[in-house]
């Protein structure tokens, strides 16, 4: 059992965010008949079974054909529909990247790209199925906000927000169980980091399945007298530059944690702001630029130094480097 699973043992409620996502999608589809779901033989893995049952004609399954899937979604949006493309993040972003660039981003199409089972959620299925480049790929494109919610509540809030937002988005969801972190009335705001915990010695910035690990790390740090600030930076683009600048100025050291390669993801996005406004020591935790060995997502996150203890250790070492 991974360290983090052990820590939340007292709090047994770990949620698969796909459930919150499809619950919300169905609730919105019930009142907005323009909403359609587009998928690639992924009805089960995207948990679209309920949607299909209720609105079989609004579930558009193009088969195992991701490039077509994204193109079709762009056309549906042109015809006045509100497509939610629901597919394994690795194939959605990897296989259809040029369709995303030209048909969605450049054409500025109102399509919601929902990358399911992102990060290393597919664990033992291996690097072909890991989606640990998607922050980098999609955030390189203009017009497409990149969002990785941290729990079920934020997932539901972001999905609801997606309907009201006109324009493309990339919503990056996991299937790895996470505890609830937000209160049920949480509202999602694009480009705003959530201050999860106040602290002045160091800041830990995380998103997705890493946010609760960061909070456990902050607990551990407080036991050794270190006050860590924790920011949930679910929006990777547009990034909350203000919160980052404040963290740099007030805490003087920043650790970033992400279920993504350290090349071009959340850590890079944070560093782009830090070097510009107020350089401070940083440590970027993530997949260290390799194809991961065989293992589950939680196992691999621990292996890559992102157990709560691992994060705390990186934070402690970073504090020593503060000016």
């Amino acid at each position: 059992m991974s360290a983090v699973t052990e820590q939340v043992r007292g709090n047994p409620a770990l949620h698969d965010c796909r459930d919150a996502f499809t619950r919300t999608l169905e609730a919105m589809a019930a009142v907005n008949s323009d909403i359609v779901a587009v998928c690639n033989d992924s009805v089960g893995s995207s948990k679209l079974g309920g949607f299909k049952e209720k609105w079989p004609e609004r579930l558009i399954n193009v088969g195992i054909a991701e490039q077509n899937m994204v193109g079709v979604a762009a056309g549906l949006a042109n015809g006045g529909k509100l497509p939610f493309v629901c597919a394994a993040s690795c194939f959605l972003t990897g296989r259809a990247l040029e369709q995303i660039k030209a048909d969605i981003a450049y054409s500025n199409t109102n399509v919601k790209l929902c990358g399911i089972s992102s990060g290393m959620a597919y664990g033992e299925l291996g690097p072909t199925h890991h989606s640990i480049e998607d922050f980098a790929w999609i955030r390189a494109l203009p017009n497409v906000p990149v969002i990785a919610p941290a729990d079920s509540i934020e997932t539901a809030a972001a999905a609801e927000w997606a309907v009201s937002h006109v324009g493309p988005i990339f919503l990056r969801l996991s299937r790895v169980g996470v505890p609830d972190l937000f209160s049920s009335d949480h509202k999602f705001e694009l480009g705003r980091a959530d201050l999860m915990r106040e602290g002045a010695d160091v800041t830990i910035i995380a998103n997705g399945v890493l946010t609760h690990r960061a909070m456990f790390a902050a607990d551990l740090l407080s036991q050794s007298g270190i006050a860590a600030r924790v920011l949930n930076m679910s929006t990777v683009r547009p990034i909350d530059a203000e919160a980052i600048e404040k963290a740099a100025r007030e805490t003087g050291a920043i650790v970033t944690c992400e279920e993504h390669t350290i090349f071009g993801g959340l850590g890079s996005a944070v560093a782009e702001v830090v070097v510009d406004v107020h350089p401070v020591p940083m440590k970027m935790l993530g997949v260290p630029g390799i194809f991961a060995p065989t293992g589950s997502a939680n196992f691999l996150l621990d292996e890559f130094g992102m157990s709560p203890g691992g994060i705390a250790e990186s934070a402690t070492r970073l504090i020593d480097k503060k000016a």
């Binding site: 299925l125 060995p293 065989t294 293992g295 196992f299």
Partner: peptide, 13 residues
């Protein structure tokens, strides 16, 4: 097969 660090993950390498 599928064990940590095994050469045999879910897809051939």
């Amino acid at each position: 097969f599928l064990k940590p660090y095994s050469a045999l993950n879910g897809h051939p390498n």
